[in-house]
Design a protein around this nucleic acid. Structure first.
Lengths: 346, 346
DNA sequence: TTGTAAGCGTTATCAA
DNA sequence: TTGATAACGCTTACAA
């Protein structure tokens, strides 16, 4: 079975292969009448050009790839979604890959992309990716960095202003009358540093002293159950020696959602006794109990913008002389019930 | 720039292209010494075979594709994850695509796959996909159906036993002393029918009369906000005329999570006054308030098994005579706090 | 053990 | 306006 080829069409029409090819590509060299006949027969036989023949000849594939650490992460899935939309409207095919935060796996993926003549790559590198390798790849095919933009690669980068997000969230908690704020961090996560810095700055701007004691750092290597257990213990300890009303800034979904559950167990009312805001892109925020105020990352926009920058680079005659840009998009604050009631009077 | 080719390697080595090709493919026709030289030079120059030349020649790509409706759906993302794992361990590349529940888009995707000489396709078809088209595609390249298996296509199918899942969940609610059970359905969703049937059967098996009045059906076309609003009204109405303790079976995440929030607003205690169990694959179940009992679909296994069946089919000499199987995997019940406390005495 | 040549399905150049 | 031919990078009979 398989697909019908140009050759076969040509034979059926009594034309040459090259004429058929030109007719199907709507070349001006071919008569209107011939074009019509060719195109009719082609669609009657459901002809589809073979990508491999085409790409082998042209050296292009009209395909870009995106590599992210984990597909099953809502934030990253939204990046994908945005990339998908932008690729589609720029007439590129998009292929997805996930590195699982594994630099070796990532190298494998990149190499396989190179042998596929991919036209461009959008990548959110895993934590320990070597810049050198990215550099090498970038010599052959344009790369654009997304989300994880702290790599010394001379190219377009699109990220989120985590510092600003944490600043705004902290300011919001302060505005809601919470001067005592706990921060929930995942140990060694990439975003931790910037978000903590933003938090500190907000305290500073409000003349509130910062204390390491208010940072709760949980080991993200633990199993889910152990992680929750460890979080519970630390929360209980911190809460026992802290004046309410307090505020809590959750820097990851797991930590924030678990904290809501733990507070409920401890019979601490949210938001009256403890206001909670989390960095989160989950749709569930609205349906949580209570509905969770969130710092939302512009994931869709990142994906879109990433592809657009990539297209720009691919269309560049000499991309090594192109002016490269670094864009930091602002997260958006969504206020819901978990922060928006008056504190209980202490 | 670009990549080095066989031809170039051959010239550098003073060998013929075919010898180099054979050497790199570790053919027994080539002397050990030559192989060594060739392979050394190849890796020194970071040679990577060009997929297009290769596939054009061999007609194979070692690539399978998976098409699902929505990437950003945790359940479907887990299917992807499973497929990814199985493809990897079977030495296939996997490319992902999403149809967005749009039959036309899906046709486009399938056609583009056909022109890419993909070796096989795993698909969870959109609701209104035409079987005829799937049939046609299946003539050219093997297809395996996953999750949405109610299509008259003669091939392997892997799905979930939704009826059984709903039966078990209902039985669990009954076991927990809830004889009055509300069911939350999304209107026109594919899973609704089977799950409702399973629910009815469980009632029957326990000599509990079924009443349409206990089915809450929400229009899934509504915006998130309107949907929650409409759900709230219906819940309030039903709950006002129902004896507690009741049980609630949520057939989708949005409905279940929203219900938890609404019940909390209404100051109805879960599980004491209303026990809640939901069909869900979200990791958040553990962190909800209260932790949510769930019927978990074996998404990872589905993805894996789907690829395995596909590989089986691809390796088949004559796949049109192959015996095709339909596998229904059992969902798994996970009991958490939302159903596992004694009902309040009424 | 190595080399030659043909061919996979296209497109592009040049000639008719 | 159409056709013959070469080429893209690779594999594979078959010949040397």
């Amino acid at each position: 079975m398989g697909n019908i080829t140009l050759k076969e069409l040509a034979k059926m029409l009594g034309l040459s292969v090259s004429s058929v090819s030109k007719a199907l590509n709507d070349s001006h060299e071919i008569s209107v009448e011939t074009k019509r006949k060719v195109q009719e027969l082609a669609s009657a036989h459901n002809y589809r050009p073979n990508m491999f023949g085409k790409s082998l000849k042209t050296g292009r594939t009209n395909t870009v790839a995106i590599i992210i650490p984990y597909l099953a992460n809502p934030f990253q899935a939204q990046i994908l979604e945005g990339a998908h939309q932008a690729a589609y409207s720029n007439n590129y095919k998009l292929i997805f890959m996930q590195s699982r935060e594994d630099a070796d796996k990532e190298i494998e993926l990149l190499q396989s992309l190179l042998s596929q003549n991919i036209d461009g790559i959008l990548i959110s590198p895993s934590a320990n990716t070597s810049v050198e390798f990215l550099q090498e790849v970038h010599q052959e095919v344009p790369i654009v960095l997304i989300d994880r933009i702290d790599f010394e690669l001379e190219t377009h980068k699109i990220g989120v202003d985590n510092e600003r997000g944490a600043f705004a969230a902290t300011q919001h908690l302060i505005d809601m009358g919470r001067e005592h704020i706990l921060v929930l961090n995942g140990k060694d996560l990439g975003v931790t540093q910037k978000r903590t810095a933003g938090h500190k700055n907000a305290l500073l701007a409000n003349q509130i002293p910062f204390s390491e004691d208010n940072i709760i750092e949980v080991d993200y290597q633990l199993s889910r159950q152990d992680l929750v257990h460890s979080l519970r213990e630390m929360l209980q300890e911190k809460l026992s020696k802290v004046d309410k009303p307090i505020g809590i800034l959750g820097n990851t979904d797991i930590l924030t959602l678990s904290t809501l559950a733990i507070l409920s167990e401890m019979e601490i009312c949210v938001p009256e006794e403890a206001a909670v805001i989390g960095f989160s892109n989950t749709e569930a925020a609205d349906s949580l109990n209570p509905a969770l105020s969130t710092v939302v990352q512009p994931a869709l926009e990142m994906g879109k913008l990433g592809i657009e920058k990539l297209v720009e680079l691919m269309n560049c005659k000499n991309r090594f002389q192109a002016v490269t840009t670094t864009t930091k998009l602002d997260p958006m604050l969504v206020f819901r019930k978990s922060t928006t009631a008056q504190p209980a009077s202490s």
